[in-house]
């Protein structure tokens, strides 16, 4: 079972998929601010790369998983990462 996935469409028109939950505290990155191919967590100031999932600054210390995205005939296909998800304290995959 995978944790929720957030799918992003940038202003440049590229599509990306990350684990939706910030690694610092339970918050949905889908509600975050997308700019320069990064998403800023809506709660605190960590931003995550839309391509690799790496984090730039605290309070989050660990990146999120990035998933492979293919757009075919207008459909977004996501191939899940096989890495273990990195979830914040107290959040478990249902």
């Amino acid at each position: 079972m995978s944790p929720p996935i957030a799918v992003f469409l940038t202003e440049e028109g590229t599509v990306h998929a990350l684990d939706d939950t910030c690694t610092h505290q339970d918050a949905s990155l889908a509600a975050g601010w997308v700019e320069d191919c990064r998403v800023e967590c809506p709660l605190h100031e960590s931003t995550f790369s839309l391509t690799t999932g790496e984090v730039d600054q605290p309070p989050a210390k660990r990146g999120v998983r990035a998933h492979q995205v293919t757009v075919r005939d207008g459909e977004v296909l996501v191939e899940l990462s096989t890495a273990a998800p990195k979830l914040p304290p107290g959040v478990e995959v249902a």
């Binding site: 929720p4 939950t21 709660l43 605190h44």
Partner: peptide, 24 residues
Amino acid sequence: TLQCGYHAWTYALEGELVAAPNLT
């Protein structure tokens, strides 16, 4: 965003609640 400094309830500039700790 417009974010409360107490528990970080976070509102879009357009007003709706977009995030809060454990809101998911």
